[in-house]
Design a protein around this nucleic acid. Structure first.
Length: 768
DNA sequence: ATAGGGTTAG
């Protein structure tokens, strides 16, 4: 009786000891799915099984001890079972009750792997029923994994032997091997084992282990594919799967991966009842909002809600805040209604988000109403952040006095102490309103309230002083605080530099810049822009260009606005070559010229009377996908006026107005100015009427042009009429208005009317 | 929840 193809025949004369590899790979072992059909003849019917100990002794006694060379050679081969006296071993194991279990006991008890392998091979052929190979190897793996040190090396060798025999791994063997290999970082070996495993043996815990391994090995996208593979093959995730995926995918290091794919994964887990905890869900929502927009986050939240996930206020808050940032009040209201319906109580944060949104939308009174609806003295009571939001809102709406009042109220009615932010907001409000003294008073009171000023406080006041033209006070204040240990930062210097440039004090600006850099404060992109813009406007293009170079050297890229400001500077100096060079540099740097870039060039060309080239640039503008706007046509209209072609200017004005481009005050002002200069005062006046009829309010510039025209013709009464209109309309005269009228009205002895005008009273009635 | 800029036509 031969066991062809199923086992190695011990009597095969060609290969008594070493079996060629090809033959080896043909070895087929007994496998549960392919039960042996052949019955072996040497089964005895009798008696109890022999003591496994006896078998073990036999196996070990009979085993030849091969020399090292032989051992090396034989490693790659399945050991021939011929080494034992076949008949003797057969009779030893012939008892019918010597089962698979006993065989495994024998294998387990054999200390020596080589002997064990030989025995497995023998028993797979000669025993009846044949030994089940995968189980035998599982026994070997199990034993090897317990022996220290380096069980993984022994397991690797055994795995090799198992593969040589074409044996599939049992689920337990695979799990054991994967655990051992992954513990020493053998990721691809672990994956290979998993891959070779029959799909029905790939159980959830094994998936979990590999998912964990892949994340630990910094292969998040592989982990993600494995997870998707898991779901696709119908394997159910459990809580552990969820715990691994949720926490790993929220880590900073795993932020590169596709959010969509993650969202799908979260949903898939949810379908199996595995949900992120409320904190994780909130983090997901925040991240989805930031990276993919609120719609994705909205969908996820609602899908999870439908799947029965536990939803808590913070998750809603995250979504509400993001909807607020997008000004999506409709969805905010829907979500709030849903919360109410689900019985999720809004928290202080929820109310804070609402208040913040209302304030940012300039609806401060409604925000104050929300405050009144909140609790007092319980956990739904407004906190310092709530008050700060409101105070800031009031200040930004120019209601800084009410802000101050609210600061008192928060302490008195809510027992809530103002903090540094409260003070900073209020001081900013006073500074922006030009009430520097009030700001200073608050500042001086801070230490005794136990709220020491910080760098934001300093910057707020420094900027306030700068914006109110008090640069030397600002410098003085800065110096004073430095003496008290407060250090400035890029923002401090930015305010000071910007203000210096604003008053054309380039020397001071550069000095401050030097001081800043030598003080170890790195300029940021805002500082660079401030410098470039200020220097360009001051006509210091060389310096501006060199700052732009340092900006690039510092690793910042110039943005469109920076290039535009430089181009505009060169244009103002009529250095068109330089302007075009800058345009080229900009394009080379990959920054696309925008509407402003083209308008700058067109305006400069028009100003120089080169309408032809201006039109060419406008064609390029359209080619590049930019749409000419009111500003573009305004520049061209100005160009036509400039070269004395008022008719062409009006023609363009009419045609563009007809095609739906609404002229603005600037365009009317240009035309009115040139009409006045061209002695067409009546047309100018009727254009102003038209302007009003179109809903465009005349500005001081409009009136200035007309006053000049009227003065040249000495049309006093018409001037009084306009002065009244100006007052009625609430249009403040600027210094030019005052200059023209002062000169004209004093010359004709009508200074009273001028005074009344400046004070805002009616001037045309002569009974004064 | 707080601080600095935002370019073009009169």
């Amino acid at each position: 009786m031969h066991c062809k193809n199923r086992c190695l025949r011990p009597q095969d004369p060609a290969t008594p000891h070493a079996v060629p590899m090809k033959r080896m790979q043909m070895l087929k072992y007994h496998h549960p799915s392919t039960p042996p059909t052949t019955k072996l003849p040497f089964r005895s019917s009798s008696s109890s099984p022999p003591d496994p100990r006896v078998v073990i002794d036999f196996l070990q006694r009979k085993r030849k001890s091969p020399n090292n060379e032989q051992q090396e050679r034989e490693k790659e081969k399945v050991q021939s079972p011929d080494e034992w006296n076949d008949e003797e071993l057969r009779s030893l194991l012939s008892s019918a009750s010597f089962t698979q279990t006993h065989l495994l006991q024998v294998i387990r008890a054999l200390n020596d792997t080589q002997t064990a392998l030989r025995f497995i091979d023998w028993a797979s052929c000669h025993h009846s029923p044949p030994l089940h190979g995968p189980s035998a190897f599982q026994t070997l793996f199990d034993a090897a994994s317990r022996r220290l040190p380096n069980p993984h090396l022994r397991l690797q060798e055994l795995l090799h032997q198992s593969r040589l025999r074409g044996l599939p791994l049992s689920a337990d063997s695979a799990s054991l091997l994967i655990h051992s290999f992954s513990a020493v970082g053998w990721v691809s070996q672990s994956l290979q084992i998993f891959h070779d495993l029959k799909p029905h043996l790939r159980k959830t815990p094994l998936y979990n282990h590999l998912l964990h391994l892949l994340f630990k090995s910094d292969r998040p996208s592989d982990a993600l594919s494995l997870a998707h593979h898991m779901f696709d093959s119908g394997r159910r995730p459990n809580q552990v799967t969820g715990a691994i995926l949720f926490s790993a995918l929220l880590k900073r290091s795993n932020h590169g991966i596709d959010e969509d794919s993650i969202a799908r994964l979260v949903l898939e887990l949810g379908r199996h009842g595995v949900f992120p905890d409320p904190v994780q869900l909130t983090q997901w929502i925040t991240r989805l909002c930031r990276n993919c927009g609120t719609v994705k986050a909205w969908d996820l939240l609602h899908a999870l809600k439908d799947l029965g996930a536990e939803l808590q206020v913070p998750s809603f808050n995250a979504l509400l805040a993001s909807l607020g940032r997008e000004r999506d009040f409709h969805r905010m209201n829907l979500l709030l209604a849903e919360m109410k319906e689900m019985g999720v109580e809004p928290s202080v944060i929820t109310h804070g988000i609402l208040i913040n949104q209302l304030c940012k939308s300039r609806r401060v009174d409604e925000a104050l109403q929300v405050l009144d609806k909140m609790g007092k003295g319980d956990e739904t009571a407004p906190d310092v952040v709530t008050f700060n939001t409101l105070i800031d809102g009031l200040c930004k709406a120019g209601r800084q006095d009410e802000g101050l009042g609210l600061m008192d109220r928060m302490l008195m009615q809510y027992n809530c102490s103002p903090n540094i932010v409260t003070y900073n907001c209020l001081m900013d409000g006073f500074c922006k309103a030009g009430e520097l003294d009030n700001a200073r008073e608050l500042f001086d009171g801070m230490p005794e309230q136990g709220v020491p000023p910080n760098v934001i406080t300093m910057n707020t006041i420094v900027d306030g002083m700068c914006k109110n033209g008090r640069i030397s006070s600002a410098l003085q204040f800065f110096k004073e605080l430095r003496g008290k240990g407060l250090e400035g930062n890029a923002v401090t210097y930015c305010s000071l530099i910007g203000a210096s440039l604003h008053v054309n004090n380039v020397t001071k600006a550069m000095e401050l810049f030097e001081e800043m850099v030598s003080g170890g404060i790195s300029p940021d992109s805002v500082t660079y822009f401030t410098l470039i813009s200020g220097l360009s406007q001051a006509g210091r293009l060389e310096e501006a260009s060199s700052v732009a170079s340092s900006m690039e050297e510092a690793g910042f890229h110039l943005d469109v606005a920076s290039y535009n400001v430089l181009i505009s500077g060169f244009c103002r100096k009529k250095k068109f070559e330089e302007a075009y060079k800058m345009l080229k540099r900009m394009e080379e740097a990959g920054v696309k010229p925008d509407e402003v870039t083209f308008n700058t060039l067109i305006a400069a060309l028009c100003k120089g009377g080169d309408i032809l080239t201006a039109n060419e640039v406008m064609s390029k503008m359209i080619e590049e996908g930019c749409v000419p706007s009111v500003v573009t046509y305004g520049a061209l209209i100005h160009g036509h006026c400039k070269v004395g072609n008022l008719d062409e200017a009006l023609k363009l004005f009419r045609s563009k107005a007809a095609s739906g481009i609404r002229p603005n005050a600037v365009i009317y002002n240009i035309l009115i100015d040139y009409l006045c200069k061209g002695n067409e005062l009546d047309s100018a006046l009727s254009l102003m009427d038209e302007m009003r009829a179109e809903g465009v309010f005349p500005t001081a510039t409009t009136y200035n042009s007309l006053f000049k025209g009227l003065r040249d013709r000495n049309l006093l009464d018409k001037a009084y009429e306009l002065m009244d209109k100006m007052n009625e309309q609430g249009c403040n005269p600027d210094y030019i208005t005052v200059e023209i009228l002062t000169e004209w009205l004093s010359a004709v002895g009508e200074t009273t009317r001028l005074r009344r005008f400046v004070q805002g009273h009616e001037v045309s009635v002569s009974s004064m």
